[in-house]
């Protein structure tokens, strides 16, 4: 009922998306001008939710979902003094205008009943080392204390 399988422990799931500069400007303008509906924006995911295709009007963007190094809280306010935590934001979808490899072109027809959980090794491919604020650039390598593992650390793939 209330297992924390990622998103279930929050009311909403939130993630960040990074768009190419020109598209970002256009999207930002249309959001602010409230004329956003002129160009429809849609998203589609691969089975493991690591790849996405974003369509903006006739433009196609290819995205890859990364895991951010730091815990980011999305904090909501209606008076600019008290803040209510709205969600944990822990992923960043980086979108590019061209598919850099075959891997990026996902087969939309095979989408998705959803819910594939990657193992730890697969997850590492999606770990981004930079935080989103300037001082946390390269934080995973530069600023995180390393955990000293004991020799008999057991394989953690066993339990789920």
């Amino acid at each position: 009922m209330s297992r924390w399988r990622g998103e279930d422990a929050q009311y909403e799931h939130q993630f960040l998306v990074r768009l190419p500069p020109e598209v970002a400007k256009e999207v930002r303008d249309s959001i602010n001008a409230n004329s956003y509906k002129r160009k429809p924006l849609s998203i589609d995911f691969s089975d493991d939710c690591r790849r996405a295709v974003i369509e903006y009007g006739h433009d196609k963007l290819y995205g890859k979902m990364y895991d951010l190094p730091c815990i980011i809280e999305s904090q909501k306010t209606v008076d600019r003094k008290t803040f209510y935590k709205s969600a944990d934001v822990s992923q960043l979808l980086i979108c590019k205008e061209d598919a850099s490899s075959d891997e990026d072109i996902i087969d939309v027809s095979s989408m998705t009943k959803g819910g594939k959980i990657l193992n730890r090794k697969e997850l590492k491919k999606y770990a981004i080392i930079h935080g989103i604020s300037p001082p946390l650039k390269n934080v995973r390598k530069r600023r995180f204390r390393k955990t000293a593992k004991k020799k008999y650390a057991h394989s953690i793939e066993v339990e789920r």
Partner: peptide, 26 residues
């Protein structure tokens, strides 16, 4: 219980406050 899980698995504890998006058709 949507905000305070009553049960934790090793998986959920390893992703503590780092939820991984896995169900697009919610």
């Amino acid at each position: 219980p949507k905000l305070f899980p009553t049960h934790w698995t090793p998986y959920s504890l390893r992703n503590f406050h780092r939820p991984i998006f896995c169900r697009p058709n919610y």
